[in-house]
Amino acid sequence: MDIFIQQIINGLVLGSIYALVALGYTMVYGILGLINFAHGEVVMIGALTALTAIGVLVPAGLPGPVVVLAGLLIAIPVCMAVGFAIERVAYRPLRNAPRLAPLITAIGMSIVLQQLAMIAWGRNYHTFPALLPALPHRVMGAAITDLQIIIVVTAALLMAALLWLITRTRLGRAMRATAESPSVARLMGVDVDRVIAFTFVLGSALAAVAGVMVAANYSIAHYAMGFMLGLKAFTAAVLGGIGNVGGAMLGGLLLGVIESLGAGYIGDLTGGFLGSHYQDVFAFFVLILVLVFRPSGLMGEKVAERA
C-alpha cells in the first residue's frame, strides 16, 4: 500500500512538471493550431542556464534556496528570449505556409538548439547541487521531501496565476480572441503578432521553471533532456485536450501518475517480463491510445467537421 501512495506522490510531482511544460504546447496550439516542436529544448535550456548560474553563485555562500531562486530568475528571461526567437525564426515567416512547413522548421530549430547547448555545456550530465532541504516527511507510510512539496505548490500557484491572466486581463482576452479567430481579432484592434509572440514567451517562462524543477527533482541536467520531456508534456497536453489550458494541467498530472504507477507495477503486471526501464513507453502508449480513441482529449471539445 505504501508503495502505491509513494508512486502517487512521485506521479503528482512529475505531473506538475509535465503540466507546466504542457501549458506551453497547449497555448501555442490554441492560438496557432501548430505544435511547437522546439518547446522541449526550451525546458532544457532553462535547466542548464539555471545550473550554470547556480554554479557561479554557490561559492558566494548565500543560502541554498536563495541561490536556486536566483538561478531560476536568470533562466526565465533566457528562455523567454529563446521562445521569442523560435517564434520569429520558425513560425512567423511561415504563417501562411502549408501545415507541415512550420513543423519542419521547428524540428530544425530543435536540433540547432540542442546542438548549441551541447557546444555550450558539453555532453556530460550536470549535477544539481543539494541546495534545498531534502529531508523526507512521512505521509501515510510514504515519503515526501520539501523539494517535492515546493514543486507541487509552485506549479499550482503558477497555474492559478496563468488562469487569472487568461480569464481576467486584457492580454488574456486578446489571447482568447486570437485563438478564436486571428483575422477577426485583428479587425477588433488586437495586435495578433504581438499576442502570438507573447504566447511563446509566456510558455517559455513556464518551461524555464519546469526545467529547474526537473533538474532539482532528478539532481541532473543534460543537453538532450528536453526531447523526451517535451514529448511527454505534449502527450499530457493531448491527453487533456490540446488547446485547452485546464486540460493541459489535468493531462500533466494524470500522465505523471500513470507513468509512476506504471513504472512501479509494470513488473507485476507483465509477470516480470517488462521492467521499470519501460517507463518511457507508457507515455507513448497513452498518446497513441488517446489519439486513436479520443482525439479531442479528456477536456477538449469535439472539433466540428469542416468540409
Partner: peptide
C-alpha cells in the same frame, strides 16, 4: 555536432 547543426539550419532555411 557540426553535422547536426547544419541539418537543423538546413531544415529551417530550406523551408523558408
Amino acid at each position: 555536432t557540426l553535422r547536426l547543426l547544419l541539418f537543423g539550419i538546413a531544415l529551417v532555411l530550406v523551408m523558408r
